[in-house]
Amino acid sequence: MKKKVLAALLTTAMVSSVLVGCGSQPASAPAGDDTAAEAPAADDTAAEAPAASGDVIKVGIINNDPNESGYRTANDKSMKEMFTAANGYEASFAYSLKNDEQISAAQKFIQDGVDYLLLSAADTAGWDSVLKDAQDAGIKVILFDRTIDAPDSLYEASIVSDMAKEGETAVTWLKGQNLEEYNIIHIQGVMGSAAQKGRSGALDAQVAAEANWNLVTQQTAEWNAEKAQQIVQSVIDAGTSFNVIYAENDDMAKGAVAALDKANISHGVGKDVIVMGYDCNKWALEELLAGNWNYDGQCNPFQASYIDDIIKKLEAGETLSEKVIIMDEKGFDATTITQEDVDTYGI
């Protein structure tokens, strides 16, 4: 019996320590260093609010979990840097990858009486009624990164990436390489995701249109580096020749390159295989700078400055000229990229 009690005690200790681990996790998860500095800052604003009332703009920001991807981490970081007390904002953040949790967070923000609701929705459906509540409460809604299926009267603006345009930019670049023949390994993201559809669409159209553009293989690696490695490995094992790797994100391009290295196939500027990636991770841009990769397409996570502009305009009583704002997105070529680009655009 004694042993049992001891075991029970030990496990309770273990469980509670892990639960504490979980509990503290969301608090410390968002962007490490910033959190400590950010939390007191928010308190300050609350304290000063009565004195400087009216100046502070209260925003409620609903985002996806920053752990989701490097893109999301950079996105969350830029939001945190923009919406600070120093810039005249009082920001509250809510994170979830689940739509229902996001909706209840939105309801809470409405009750708290925020001035602006900034939303990157996990799912496109189900937002009508809560956004109507927001509108009735006089809260202005701005969508970022993701669109929703709701009448556009329910929100002020939507700041999004045009994935199809990202694909076109990349394919236009590839066309500009003037290869005699394009034998492409196309590694896709999770099928049906907006990024996959947009980035695949442009390439599919080009392959269908041109006789010297061939797809050696077209497979989904589900954004996963190891799967991409296996796909490229299987092409190499089959002895099929290819000269372009078109991966729909950096991770998958990295996996593909690992397979090339194993088989001693040269890649990069002026080499046998052209390597293309997306998302502009810092390490990926460094690969470009070193000439190991050829192209990286940007998916701009820095919506914060666009949102700031819009809020300033709305506060000044101006009307917005357009509802859907498509962000500028670049494509980097290994032959022209500079260290400055890596520092500015790397996420």
Binding site: S69, E222, N224, A225, Q229, A258
Partner: peptide, 15 residues
Amino acid sequence: KVSRISSINYSVIAK
């Protein structure tokens, strides 16, 4: 797993 790509992606590693 982490050695294969010398990096990690928390959301998709060993998915």
